[in-house]
Write a protein that binds this DNA or RNA. Sequence first.
DNA 1: AAGCGCATGTAAAAGGTTACATGATTAC
DNA 2: GTAATCATGTAACCTTTTACATGCGCTT
Lengths: 193, 193
Amino acid sequence: MATSNESFRYFTLGLLAHQPMSGYDIRRFLKSLEWLIGSPSFGVIYPALHALLEDGLVTMEVASRPDKPPRKIYSITEAGKQALLEWVDQPPASNANLKAFIMRLIPVGSSAHAGLIVHLQQRRAQVLAHQADLERIITDWAEGVDWGQRLAVDYGLAVASAELAWLDKVLVRLSTEPWAEEVIEIERSVDMV
Amino acid sequence: MATSNESFRYFTLGLLAHQPMSGYDIRRFLKSLEWLIGSPSFGVIYPALHALLEDGLVTMEVASRPDKPPRKIYSITEAGKQALLEWVDQPPASNANLKAFIMRLIPVGSSAHAGLIVHLQQRRAQVLAHQADLERIITDWAEGVDWGQRLAVDYGLAVASAELAWLDKVLVRLSTEPWAEEVIEIERSVDMV
DNA sequence: AAGCGCATGTAAAAGGTTACATGATTAC
DNA sequence: GTAATCATGTAACCTTTTACATGCGCTT
């Protein structure tokens, strides 16, 4: 085992489970999701790939193309798929924030449906708890409240509501729709924003 | 000048502008907002307070109480208020995530009405941009899409929608209501952009 | 041949957490 | 007297960013 950084290593492994990529590809993909989960620099990405390679969870091959510099393409191995499934099965941290949730959602959503439902239900319980926390803050104040703090809590409650609505929507879909039509289903769910 | 850690130092200064507190108080307050902005450990809080003290932005006095161990209460100074106003005036990072936004929202919302509106409008523009990014990802895919990735993007769009709705609601309220004294700064009138 | 976009990599510095040390006060 | 809570602080460790180094291949 090389460096630790477990969650990012497995997140990366999840991306590679979908399709082989280079470090540069991963960087670009994360750049587009920067708002959601941040986009770690090469100083994180490359060492993570090296660690996965050392652990035998991925293989690497150099792809020389005619018109561009060569790239190192990483592909997941059978051992990698196995390790990913095991990791996905583990319960998430109880205090996971939005970023941590999404970073698990991607590999979990890609692999196992039963695991996905559990994952979303756990998230739902956590958001409910945090919502209660925020509401308790407000009732504890009740007067002489700082404006900035009030706005911040109000904002948090708005996000919590939106998250709960989204989670319920997805959970209902997952529990009522037959698995076979999953791809079509999710395409329908995405358009309504 | 002591350690860097600028954003957390000013965030702390903003809390002290609202009311004098000890490091322990700050920790407890942040614990309740953990979901929103995370709760840094004492290894961050105490050095930040020491740095503020060294820079003359706060003063410290030991409060010995009869029934509990003594605490070090930090209060903002005039120089501190000045520095805070200058910091609040600076534009936020263009790629600020939710946490960074909230950490600025608290001091900004506490100090200046005009600055608050600008801050929220900037956030609004950023969220719109990120929303467009996420929508572009979807249109770029269109085929053989990974389930987890689709869920993540869908989730991001739901949060973006909620944020925009919240921002619009607050901005409308701020621009239409004749403003209450609460928002106007405690002692001094400030001119801001 | 200079500059740019692609692509990989690393070292130094900054940022943050964990674990520990210290000690006062209350409750059992 | 010993455990628990309050309260402050530091050092070792881990993670992440920043800044740099390297080099291919295309365009001007």
